[in-house]
């Protein structure tokens, strides 16, 4: 059984490899102008060149920083506000509908407002990223808090636990799966908004790099940047999944 899985994996890698070979062939035969489509060899060379000159690494770190700061701020604020709203019936009745109303709002529409308030600055980018990333986390937290088994609250009441203790000992652990799912979702939002803010405000990062490469028609550099962005999205999401598995191990065991 295990061997079959490995074999499928190998076959799957081979399929992906053949797609890359096809890409190389298309580029070599110049079916698409090399201005738009560099071969994987040229994209890889641009990637290596970018890293050895240190240029690309700096941009990558820039994007990761924007993403991480915005996401952490959003996580803390989102869980805090979500806990506050979710743990009180009154807040849920008055505040939650407004939040649900705001949810389908395309978050990027807040960018012009943020630019008007804060200018084309690092602070603007952080505000926008945090503002965008807070929604999935906050709504997931509210949902998680609202879905706590009511009997647990009854137990807490008969034990005369304080509200803080109820939140820390009962509500948060029980809402944790929802919260982590929300955090993983908002990670993607944070990456997208980082790229948009870098494009708009010219902040140091991969978004700015891909835009400049496109303007100068350096397609190999452009593809190198896009590949890095894909890798960033993939690796950060895997990292959060690993943390998720770790933190939720007790739950899997309980089932």
């Amino acid at each position: 059984m295990k061997r079959a899985a490995i074999l499928w994996r190998v076959a799957s890698v081979l399929v992906a490899g053949s797609f890359i070979a096809a890409w190389q062939l298309v580029a070599d035969l110049r079916l698409v102008s090399p201005v738009f489509l560099p071969g994987p060899d040229r994209a890889w060379a641009a990637l290596v060149r970018g890293f050895s000159s240190g240029d690309l690494a700096g941009k990558l770190i820039g994007t990761l920083e924007h993403m991480a700061y915005g996401w952490f701020a959003a996580s803390i604020a989102g869980i805090g506000l979500g806990a506050l709203i979710g743990s009180s019936k009154m807040m849920r009745a008055y505040v939650a509908p407004s939040l649900e109303f705001l949810r389908p709002l395309p978050v990027s529409a807040i960018i012009p407002v943020a630019i008007a308030m804060l200018g084309l600055t690092q602070g603007m980018a952080l505000f926008v990223i945090a503002f965008g990333a807070i929604w999935p986390i906050m709504l997931a937290t509210i949902h998680g808090f609202a879905a706590v088994e009511p009997r647990l609250y009854e137990v807490a009441r008969s034990l005369q636990m304080s509200r803080a203790a109820i939140i820390a000992k009962i509500a948060l652990p029980s809402a944790l799966p929802d919260i982590l799912a929300g955090m993983r979702l908002s990670l993607t939002v944070a990456l997208i908004l980082s790229v948009v803010c870098e494009i708009l405000a010219g902040l140091d990062g991969l978004g700015h790099w891909v835009l400049l490469s496109a303007r100068a028609f350096r397609s190999a550099d452009l593809f190198a940047g896009v590949i890095l962005l894909g890798a960033t999205g993939y690796l950060t999401s895997i990292a959060v999944s690993l943390v998720e598995q770790r933190l939720l191990a007790w739950q899997a065991a309980a089932r």
Binding site: I192, I199, L211, V226, L229, G230
Partner: peptide, 9 residues
């Protein structure tokens, strides 16, 4: 995982 907006350029 490639963010859609990265395809913009």
């Amino acid at each position: 995982p490639i963010p859609s907006i990265a395809l913009l350029p």
